[in-house]
Simulated assay, not measured.
Amino acid sequence: MNNVKAYSAASAKSPLAPTTIARRDPAEHDVQIEILFCGICHSDLHYARNEWSDVMPTIYPCVPGHEIIGRVTKVGYAVTKFKPGDLAAVGCLVDSDGTCPQCEAGLEQFCPNMVLTFGSQDKQLGGGTLGGYSDTIVVDEHFVLRVPSNLDLAAAAPLLCAGITTYSPLRHWGVTKGKKVGIVGLGGLGHMGVKFAHAFGAHTVVFTTSPSKKEDALRLGADEVVISRNADEMAKHVGSFDFILDAVSADHDINAYINLLRIDGNLTLVGAPDKPLSIPAFGLIFGRRSLSGSPIGGIAETQEMLDFCGEHNITADVEVIPIQKVNEAYERLLKSDVKYRFTIDMASLRSE
């Protein structure tokens, strides 16, 4: 067992603060990683402040972080995929049972016994699993991912959650050249959806309530930008979309977007509004449209996404911060005051 530096929250009302946590020694199939960068996901904030208490009560002290990029420092004797010095990444999952139908299908994100990078029960050390706001992490090699060497590592970190969360549904619903795709919301998730939809060759339309975001949406790869509060602009697109990715977490009129789908079109939710959405049945029935949701992807698909990003030089737009500013970043995140993700330079932790 090793003691390493980290930042943790002691309670729902406590700020994140320096601490020391225990990491297990690498077992035969384990990879030990020195963490170089860790993205900040809104899930980190929700978990640290126990805002998901109904479905995922926080285990304190908690160390958030599941967008991890680092360098391998040690491997177990049975590890074959990695060696010391390799770049490596860890996303939202660090284990699963490996035997259920979902795992056998490469869909570990649906495993009933999956172990999350933070917030699950730690089978070896007890307590909760502890995430990437730390000096190192030890993970079974099956859940460690290869990082294309051409990518900017700080900007690649959010690919481990924001990237796969948007890539997976776009792939699942067959977004390719010739398709018309809508992205609702231009934030941490939405900006990645625009980049992927554009790279897949789709005609990409961004929906936003903010006219000021039009220029940025076009820069990111959008072909068109629709101001969703403008009824005339919305009306021009009725019945024309093959697929719409809804990345908005605030309450909004989802039926307005369902009506934009063509026959057999799909709208997938990746944003999670606090309040239930009102969905009139006729919007779905007339047009045989479908509404679905999507979390992250499995390990194989996450690796596919990273390789795709390497081929197309896709990363997140990030603001890099030292870990000492993580609490300030959380407050700014609540105000959407970032374009479009924060990434922590973990060298700042080692300098304390």
Rank of each mutant, 00 (worst) to 15 (best):
Y330S: 03
G298V: 05
V94H: 03
N230C: 12
L93I: 04
E328V: 11
E233D: 09
A250K: 06
R24I: 02
I35K: 10
A6M: 08
A155H: 10
Y257C: 03
H66W: 00
L267T: 13
I244N: 03
E304D: 08
G271Q: 07
V115N: 07
R49I: 08
K83G: 05
I258F: 08
R71M: 09
S228H: 15
A300I: 11
I69P: 02
Q102I: 06
Y60F: 10
S240Y: 07
A199K: 04
F286C: 08
S278R: 12
C62P: 06
G185N: 01
I279W: 03
I258E: 09
Q324G: 09
S336W: 07
L306S: 02
F200S: 00
D345N: 14
Y257M: 02
A10P: 00
D232Q: 15
I244H: 02
D242T: 02
R289D: 09
Q109F: 07
I69S: 00
I321V: 05
P26E: 09
L218E: 10
F243I: 02
S292A: 15
R229K: 15
Y340E: 01
P26C: 14
G39N: 08
I35Q: 10
F241I: 09
K177N: 05
R332W: 00
Q32A: 14
A12C: 05
K123Q: 14
P322Q: 00
F308C: 02
V248K: 00
E352G: 14
F241E: 06
P169G: 14
P112T: 12
G106P: 01
D253A: 07
A88I: 06
P112Y: 05
E328F: 08
L159W: 08
G39D: 06
D274V: 14
G187K: 02
S212M: 12
M305D: 01
S240N: 04
E67V: 02
S134I: 06
S240L: 06
G132R: 04
V270D: 00
R289G: 05
A162T: 10
L145G: 08
H203D: 00
A247C: 12
T268S: 15
V194C: 04
A156V: 10
V318C: 03
